[in-house]
Amino acid sequence: MERVEAELFTDGGNNAVVRLPPRRFPGVLIQGDSLSIIRSEVAEVVESCDQDDLAGARETAGLLLANLDDLLARYTAALEAHKIPRPY
């Protein structure tokens, strides 16, 4: 394990916007349980598609997309608050 100093751009929470050296742009630190939930939702979409349950796949994908949109909005707000251009 290596200890490094990181810049924290948001409160910790389940997903923090941080910049690690020597990266130019911050990233998002997602807690393991939150990452597991995202993975489960993607697996649910795949399973629904395999079972030709397009309505179920669409519903789960919509929830997943909304969660990712929230995460991206938090990231974007953190960049704007610190006058950092978006990397995309």
Results as ranks from 00 to 15, higher is better:
Ala6Tyr: 07
Ala6Ile: 14
Ala6Asn: 02
Glu7Pro: 01
Leu8Phe: 11
Thr10Asn: 07
Gly12Trp: 09
Gly13Thr: 09
Gly13Met: 08
Asn14Val: 15
Asn14Pro: 12
Asn15Glu: 13
Asn15Asp: 15
Ala16Arg: 07
Ala16Val: 04
Ala16His: 08
Ala16Pro: 05
Val17Arg: 00
Val17Asn: 03
Val17Phe: 01
Val18Gln: 03
Val18Phe: 04
Val18Glu: 09
Val18Arg: 07
Arg19Tyr: 02
Leu20Gln: 09
Pro21Asp: 02
Pro21Cys: 02
Pro21Met: 02
Pro22Lys: 03
Arg24His: 07
Phe25Thr: 03
Phe25Asn: 08
Pro26Leu: 07
Gly27His: 01
Val28Met: 02
Val28Ile: 04
Val28Asp: 01
Leu29Met: 07
Leu29Arg: 14
Ile30Asp: 05
Ile30Arg: 09
Gln31Glu: 10
Gly32Lys: 10
Asp33Gly: 08
Asp33Lys: 15
Asp33Tyr: 15
Asp33Ser: 14
Ser34Leu: 14
Leu35Lys: 12
Ser36Ala: 13
Ile37Pro: 01
Ile37Val: 13
Ser40Trp: 05
Ser40Met: 11
Ser40Gly: 13
Glu41Arg: 00
Val42Pro: 00
Val42Tyr: 01
Val42Ser: 00
Ala43Asn: 12
Glu44Asp: 14
Glu44Arg: 06
Val45Asp: 05
Val45Cys: 08
Val45Gly: 09
Val45Thr: 11
Glu47Tyr: 12
Glu47Leu: 15
Glu47Asn: 15
Ser48Leu: 03
Cys49Arg: 13
Cys49Glu: 14
Asp50Phe: 12
Gln51Ala: 15
Gln51His: 15
Gln51Lys: 14
Gln51Gly: 10
Asp52Ser: 12
Asp52Arg: 11
Asp52Val: 13
Asp53Glu: 10
Gly56Asn: 01
Ala57Val: 00
Ala57Glu: 01
Arg58Thr: 09
Arg58Val: 00
Arg58Ala: 15
Ala61Gln: 12
Ala61Ser: 13
Gly62Pro: 06
Leu63Ser: 12
Leu63Tyr: 12
Leu63Asn: 12
Leu63Gln: 09
Leu63Ala: 10
Leu65Arg: 13
Leu65Val: 11
Leu68Arg: 06
Leu68Pro: 05
Asp69Ala: 08
Asp69Lys: 13
Asp69Glu: 13
Asp69Gly: 06
Asp70Lys: 13
Asp70Phe: 08
Leu71Glu: 04
Leu72Trp: 08
Ala73Glu: 08
Ala73Ile: 00
Arg74Ala: 11
Tyr75Arg: 01
Tyr75Met: 04
Thr76Trp: 02
Ala77Glu: 10
Ala77Asn: 08
Ala78Asp: 06
Ala78Ser: 02
Ala78Thr: 00
Leu79Met: 03
Leu79Gly: 01
Glu80Gly: 00
Ala81Ser: 09
Ala81Tyr: 03
His82Asp: 05
His82Arg: 07
Lys83Ala: 11
Pro85Ala: 09
Pro85Leu: 00
Pro85Ser: 04
Pro85Trp: 02
Pro85Thr: 03
Pro85Lys: 03
Pro85Ile: 09
Arg86Met: 11
Arg86Trp: 03
